[in-house]
Design a protein around this nucleic acid. Structure first.
Lengths: 341, 341
DNA sequence: TCAGGTTGCGCAATCGATGTTGCAAGAGAA
DNA sequence: TTCTCTTGCAACATCGATTGCGCAACCTGA
């Protein structure tokens, strides 16, 4: 069993008959540079091992002003962000640093506070995922000289890696159109015979780009587009339930196509959809901009656009490593078409 | 904009015409106790505010040997653990501390390393969720004098809060039985006309308890139970797919009842189930020991047992607060019966 | 034997915040 | 006026690891 009273390099030094600085050098691997005899270093290392010594990281961080901590800020713990977190953790571990993951609930104030906290911890780097106010956060980090990168939400003044939402939305929309045509829906014939875009926040670039990709694809097919077809105020789950329900009432039934922005919106929508008879559901072609394995197992066909979370994270690390200037790197999402039945 | 060079209490002291210790006292709120004049304290606080000062937390932690960090260790980021993480974060924030969430991939070695890391950071407390080797971890924490608590997986030598898996499994099993009877299944008539338990790790207490609850309920109804009906080696998703598939082959079809242990197993199972025609699915009554909103929207009825994650976390905090001795506190899960169709 | 080079290691300052101790100035009492 | 309190604040040691600097001891060649 290890000591109750925490050991310090001074304790080790005493036991090894050396000085604290020698111990420090030995344990750091800098002993060669500091011309410590190999035998001395090895003796010290052996003693430290057997005593179960581990350095006080605050002291080290205080001295070196590097904490060995790398943070990931996510809005919440949904499937997409959790996947990102998983990939991020593994990568940080592989670099012998410590991953710290914090959710900020899409609250700009909370984001700022968290960044302050983290810089007060001399954090080595911060990954922002889906932040609400990127530029503001970036300025904070720059002021505190903290390297940082944005994922899934671009920042004008910092390196960013984002999913190509516009192209993705375009492709997904075309898939929905194809699916409707396969069912002989007279696209555009009536307000119900078209596609509606639901969910997300139009003020955010990702939603904006998805709306653009959606609009382009639909316009290319139909030659027109009603602004009413786009209902994008929030990612909130309950709001999604309400939106779909309202749309249903307005149209007197489900539309023939639905473009659903994000998995939380999907989940919210399903709460309403679950109350409908199966026949109504199968009369609508669904496209979801996100991937949710359960989606493929529902009673109606759902096309999904999966964001490549591993790629996003890996590219983000690459940008950090090369101390990249502000650029926006695009990663293409993958289409998961609905299984044929 | 804040300074480029980080400010210290010494800088503030100079600007305020005071000493560092006075500044420290003023900013800590301990100025009253240290007999600093109110005006002085207010002047210092004002200056610190306007300079955007924030304390170097390593220095503070080094001095006080309290970091203000509270850690949560989870096996992975699935829905249940993510919910726990969310609740945990909020609670820690409310206490003005900093939540740190780390996933250890169910790897005991990784768990130990992480605990070492955390104690090296003078972590204030650790919450272990679903740990593989609780006693070992607990000893480590005790040695390092770190308060800790176990959630969802009991520890013999530390306070723990767990879901009452046994009672929950009993109730869920009865629900499956009721559902089978409603469909006029001749329970026990043939190997297919009964319930199979799939997934989880029998070496872990939670799975063991669920198996017990399941067995009791089934035995109470039938008066017998074949050990073959219990297939519980792992929580792994791919393994679950394989298990269900093998069971299907063995029985020449789906059984009439399935008790599915955890959402990851559910997801794995669905990969196979999705390949079956709808009629086969509706011939089986499903019970899942976990809650997954999508489950209520599948093409077949699924009964679910939801773990009360908020309650689990709140009780865990309570046990920590009262510096509880080793006890195991039970929290009842909630049944979410399949919606009627 | 001595200048000059190399090897091996310890001294002490430092990072920034905290808190104990002690000192000076003013208030009140004698 | 002198003595005792009280008030208000600064000096300084401290937490533990890191690192620039420098000092011995030893070696080598002249």
């Amino acid at each position: 069993m290890t000591k109750l009273q925490k050991e310090t390099i001074y304790d080790i030094a005493q036991k090894a008959g050396a000085s604290a600085s020698t111990v420090s050098a030995a344990l750091n691997g800098t002993w060669k540079k500091r011309r410590i005899a190999k035998v001395t270093a090895e003796r010290i290392i052996a003693i430290a091992q057997e005593q179960g010594y581990s350095a006080n990281l605050q002291a080290r961080a205080l001295r070196t002003s590097r904490s060995g901590l790398v943070a990931l800020l996510i809005p919440e713990y949904n499937r997409f962000f959790s996947n990102i977190a998983q990939t991020f953790s593994a990568e940080v571990r592989a670099r012998n640093q410590c991953p710290v993951i914090i959710s900020t609930a899409r609250d700009p104030e909370e984001e700022r506070r968290t960044v302050s906290d983290l810089t007060a911890w001399n954090i080595d780097a911060i990954f922002f995922v889906g932040s609400v106010a990127p530029e503001d956060l970036s300025r904070h980090c720059t002021a505190a000289q903290v390297p940082h990168v944005f994922v899934d939400q671009p920042c004008a003044i910092a390196p960013s890696v984002v999913t190509d939402s516009r192209t993705g939305a375009h492709i997904l929309t075309r898939e929905i159109i194809a699916s409707m045509r396969a069912r002989d829906v007279p696209i555009g014939a009536s307000p119900r015979d078209t596609i509606y875009f639901v969910g997300g926040d139009r003020l955010l670039p990702s939603t904006r780009n998805r709306v653009e990709g959606f609009s382009e694809a639909l316009y290319a097919h139909l030659g027109r587009l009603d602004p009413d077809q786009i209902i994008a105020q929030t990612y909130d789950l309950d709001a999604a339930t309400a939106s779909i329900s309202a749309l249903y009432t307005r149209l007197g039934g489900l539309p023939r196509g639905l473009f659903i922005n994000s998995d939380s919106v999907f989940e919210g929508a399903l709460r309403f959809l679950a109350t409908l008879p199966e026949a109504e559901l199968t009369s609508c072609s669904f496209g979801v901009f996100d991937y949710e394995p359960y989606g493929q197992l529902l009673r109606f066909p759902v096309h999904m656009m999966r964001q490549r979370h591993k790629m996003l994270v890996h590219r983000a690390f690459a940008l950090l490593d090369e101390a990249s200037p502000p650029v926006i790197e695009m990663v293409q999402p993958e289409l998961y078409p609905a299984p044929l039945r």
